[in-house]
């Protein structure tokens, strides 16, 4: 299988996130104010902060530990900080959130 059903859209608060445990580490799944979803590794490249606990604004999240800001779309750090977080494809189908497992599986194999 490539797309895993990880839960309902309503399980994630708008402007919030939940965590999915995978063999490749925790993945943060974000829901924006306009009900789009994004997935990225739940680990800030700076000091490993859980990005799933950051404040979600627009299509960005601010790390709760030292306020680095990442684009949910690209995983790139914004502003003066340099770094990136791995992003994963995710989509909504009939109110369910589906996570693309291919890239995750590659990360495990690597």
């Amino acid at each position: 299988m490539t797309w895993a059903d990880i839960g309902a859209l309503d399980d994630i608060p708008a402007q919030g996130a939940r965590v999915v445990k995978t063999a490749a580490g925790c993945v943060a799944v974000f829901r924006t104010a306009d009900d789009r979803v994004f997935a990225m590794a739940d680990q800030c490249p700076h000091k490993g902060g859980p990005l799933s606990e950051g404040i979600v604004h627009g299509t960005s999240v601010t790390c709760p530990l030292h306020a680095w800001v990442f684009s949910l779309e690209s995983g790139e750090a914004q502003g003066p900080d340099a770094g990136a977080v791995a992003t994963f494809a995710v989509r909504i189908e009939a109110g369910r959130i589906l996570l693309d497992m291919r890239r995750l599986a590659r990360r495990v194999a690597a």
């Binding site: 299988m1 839960g7 994630i12 939940r18 965590v19 999915v20 995978t22 063999a23 799944v29 497992m101």
Partner: peptide, 15 residues
């Protein structure tokens, strides 16, 4: 339930 992980795919990803 909201305080735990949304899903645990540790086994599925290993397939």
């Amino acid at each position: 339930a909201k305080w735990a992980a949304l899903a645990d795919l540790t086994l599925e990803a290993a397939e």
